[in-house]
Design a protein around this nucleic acid. Structure first.
Length: 567
RNA sequence: UGUCCCGUGGUGUAAUUGGCAACACGUCUGAUUCUGGAUCAGAAGAGUUCAGGUUCGAGACCUGACGGGACAACCA
C-alpha cells in the first residue's frame, strides 16, 4: 500500500532533463569540487526574446537548484554590431523574469588582455599565424564540407614574424581586412570549424567598453570557450548549432588549461514557436521597416513585447518548463504558451466589465435617473480579492455579438422575446429593437427587467441560459482596445521556402477598437495592470494609456466554445 | 559525395537506464456554472520511421537503410 503511494508520488515528480541528469552525475562524481557554475552569454546586439528565456531559465535555474551560481556575461567581441542600449534592456528583461546575477556582471571584453596573451602563446608554440590573404581567398581555400581545404601560403611563417605582424595589427598599422590571425589546426578536418579558423581580425571602430584601446578583436569562437574557462564555468549550456564548435573550444582549452578543469558544454534545442520567428536579424528588420511599432510591439516574441502584451514572468517560466529541453529541433504550438498565460491570469487577475463593440440596451420599465450599485465578485478563483460595486441604470451597453435579430440554434443570448441575466443585476427580456433603415444595423434594443430577479436576492427562482456582461451607459468610461492576433499567417515563417517572409505577415495582426466602454472602476488603471474582461479575455493596460484616455491590449482571448460552435 | 546531431499520438515531452508506451497542450463528449471562462468526469488518438540482429523480453543496445537538422561569416 505504501509502495503504491510512493509510486504515485514518483509519477507526479516532473521528469529531469538530460542536461540536469548530466549535471547531477557530475556533481555526484565530485567534479569541480561538487560545484556548479553556469552563465548566460547574450550578445548585446538586440533585445531578448522568449527563446532566450528558455536559456535563461536553464542557466539560472540549474545553478539555483543545485546550489551554484550563474554569471551574466555579455559576449561583446564585435564593436560594430553592439550597443549599450541593448545591455540595459537585457539586464532589465532578466530581472523581470526573476533572475539575478548579483555582482557577477561580466563582459568578454574583460578578457581581451588574457585572450591577446593566449594568442601570442599560440603563435610562439607555432599554433597560430598571421594570414595576409584577403577574405574571399581565405574562404575559398577553406573548401566545402565534403572537400578538404588548401593550406595558406602563410601557414608556416616564423613565430617571430607572426608576433611582430600581430603586434602591428593591433597598433593599427594595417587596414581592416588586410590581415587576420588564424589558429593552425587542420585544413583537412571534416569539421569546417577546425580548418584554421580565424581567431583575430582588425576592427577599427571603437568598442563600447574598451574604446579605442584595441585594433584587433577576437572572434566569438576564440572568446567564448575561454571566457567560460576564465570564469570557472562548469557547465556551459548552449543551443544545438554550437555542437560542431565544441571540438574547437576543446582544442583551445587543451592549450590553455593547467589542470584537469574544463567547462563541459551541453547543447539543447532552441525554442521555436508557431506563427512567429526568433531570428534577431529578422526581428530587427520588422522594427526598422515599421512592420511593428518597435521591439516591444505586443505582437513580437521579445520579452519586452510579451510584457507589454500582458504576459507575466511566471507564465513564461511555466511555458518553458512545459516544453522541456531535448536534442530534437522542435516547433512549439503557441496554444501552449496561451494556455500558460490563461492559467496564470485566471488565478491572479480581477474580473471587470468591458464592452468592446457597444450596443445600447434601454430597460423601458426601469426608473429614469435611478442608480443601483450592484455588488460583484472580483475573482471567483480567489475570495481574498474581494468585491466591488458597479453602477447600474436604465441604459446599459452590451456586446453587439450578444444580440441577434434572429437567434441561431443554441444561441443563449439576447434576441427578441429571449431572456438573459445581466450579470450581477437583473434578468431582462427583449421586447424590441431599433434598426437603422439605410445600414441595417441594430442601434438600440428595448428590454424590460424583472425586479424580483436581482442578483443576491432570493425572491425569484427564475433561471436563464445566458448571462451577459454590461456597462452602465451613464457611468461608462471610454477606452481604446488593441486586439492582437498572430504576427504571421504561416505556421513556420522562418522554415517556409518562401523567399520573403514579409509576404507571410498577417495583415490583421492588429485591430484597434475605439469607443469601447469599460466600467468606471478602471478609470484609475495604470500601465501593465491586468484584468479579465469578463467573457472576453485578459487585457493589460498599455504604456500609451492615460487616465483621460485608457488603452488596453488584449493579451489572450478566453476560450470560446460558442465561437467554436459557429465555425 | 563529407562530418556531426536527431527520428515516440496532431503538437511538445516521459518511460526508474531492457519488463508489454505515460503526461501536458490541442480535439471531442457529458456534468456543473449568474463568465458558453474556470472546475469535474470521460473519450478518441501512437505500438515508438523502416528492415534485420542481440535477448526469455527492445522505444531503449548493435548493423544497415530512409527521413529531418546543423556545419563552408574577418557574425554570435
Amino acid at each position: 500500500m505504501n509502495d503504491e503511494i510512493l509510486k504515485e508520488k514518483e509519477e507526479l515528480k516532473p521528469s529531469i532533463s538530460f542536461i540536469e541528469q548530466f549535471i547531477i552525475e557530475d556533481l555526484k562524481a565530485g567534479k569541480n569540487e561538487g560545484k556548479i557554475i553556469t552563465r548566460f552569454p547574450p550578445e548585446p546586439n538586440g533585445y531578448l526574446h522568449i527563446g532566450h528565456a528558455k536559456a535563461i531559465c536553464l542557466d539560472f535555474g540549474m545553478a539555483q537548484k543545485h546550489g551554484g551560481k550563474c554569471n551574466l556575461r555579455f559576449d561583446d567581441t564585435n564593436p560594430v554590431k553592439e550597443d549599450v542600449e541593448y545591455i540595459d534592456s537585457i539586464k532589465e528583461d532578466i530581472h523581470w523574469l526573476g533572475f539575478d546575477w548579483e555582482d557577477r556582471e561580466y563582459y568578454a571584453s574583460d578578457y581581451f588582455g588574457n585572450l591577446y596573451n593566449f594568442a601570442i602563446e599560440l603563435i610562439q608554440k607555432g599554433l597560430a599565424y598571421v594570414d595576409d590573404q584577403p577574405a574571399d581567398l581565405i574562404s575559398s581555400q577553406k573548401g566545402t564540407p565534403s572537400q578538404p581545404g588548401i593550406e595558406s601560403p602563410f601557414r608556416d611563417r616564423m613565430a617571430d614574424l607572426n608576433i611582430e605582424l600581430f603586434g602591428r595589427m593591433n597598433k593599427g598599422e594595417f587596414e581592416e581586412g588586410s590581415h587576420v590571425l588564424r589558429a593552425k589546426v587542420d585544413m583537412n578536418s571534416p569539421n569546417m570549424h577546425m580548418r584554421d579558423p580565424i581567431i583575430y581580425r582588425i576592427i577599427k571602430s571603437p568598442h563600447h567598453r574598451t574604446g579605442s584601446k584595441w585594433n584587433v578583436y577576437p572572434m566569438y569562437d576564440f572568446a567564448h570557450g575561454q571566457s567560460d574557462y576564465f570564469e570557472g564555468v562548469t557547465h556551459s549550456l548552449c543551443t544545438l548549432e554550437f555542437e560542431v564548435h565544441r571540438p574547437l573550444y576543446d582544442w583551445f582549452i587543451d592549450h590553455l588549461k593547467t589542470d584537469d578543469y574544463r567547462p563541459r558544454q551541453i547543447e539543447f534545442n532552441r525554442l521555436n514557436l508557431t506563427y512567429t520567428m526568433m531570428s534577431k536579424r529578422k526581428l530587427l528588420e520588422l522594427v526598422q521597416e515599421g512592420k511593428v511599432s518597435g521591439w516591444d510591439d505586443p505582437r513580437m516574441p521579445t520579452l519586452c513585447g510579451l510584457r507589454r502584451r500582458g504576459y507575466t514572468p511566471e507564465s513564461i517560466k511555466r511555458f518553458v518548463d512545459l516544453i522541456g529541453y531535448t536534442k530534437v529541433e522542435a516547433i512549439n504550438d503557441v496554444s501552449l504558451l496561451e494556455h500558460a498565460i490563461r492559467e496564470d491570469l485566471n488565478i491572479r487577475s480581477p474580473r471587470v466589465f468591458g464592452v468592446l463593440n457597444p450596443l445600447k440596451v434601454i430597460i423601458t420599465n426601469y426608473e429614469e435617473g435611478k442608480v443601483e450599485n450592484v455588488e460583484l465578485i472580483n475573482n471567483p478563483e480567489d475570495e481574498k480579492m474581494g468585491k466591488r460595486l458597479v453602477p447600474f441604470c436604465r441604459e446599459v451597453y452590451i456586446e453587439q455579438d450578444d444580440f441577434l435579430e434572429i437567434p441561431l440554434h443554441k444561441f443563449f443570448r439576447l434576441a427578441p422575446g429571449m431572456e438573459v441575466r445581466l450579470k450581477g443585476a437583473y434578468i431582462i427580456k427583449c421586447e424590441g429593437f431599433k434598426k437603422n433603415e439605410s445600414t441595417g444595423a441594430v442601434e438600440e434594443v428595448y428590454c424590460t427587467y424583472d425586479p424580483d430577479t436581482r442578483s443576491g436576492g432570493n425572491i425569484s427562482e427564475k433561471k436563464v441560459k445566458g448571462t451577459l456582461h454590461w456597462v452602465s451607459a451613464r457611468h461608462a468610461v471610454d477606452a481604446e482596445v488593441r486586439l492582437y492576433d498572430r504576427l504571421f499567417n504561416h505556421e513556420d515563417p522562418a522554415g517556409s521556402k518562401c523567399d520573403d517572409y514579409r509576404t507571410l505577415l498577417n495583415p490583421d495582426s492588429l485591430k484597434v477598437l475605439t469607443g469601447c466602454k469599460v466600467e468606471p472602476s478602471l478609470g484609475s488603471a495604470k500601465p501593465l495592470d491586468k484584468f479579465q474582461f469578463q467573457r472576453l479575455g485578459y487585457f493589460c493596460v498599455d504604456y500609451d494609456s492615460k487616465p483621460a484616455k485608457l488603452v488596453f491590449n488584449r493579451t489572450v482571448q478566453l476560450k470560446d466554445t460558442w465561437a467554436k460552435l459557429n465555425k
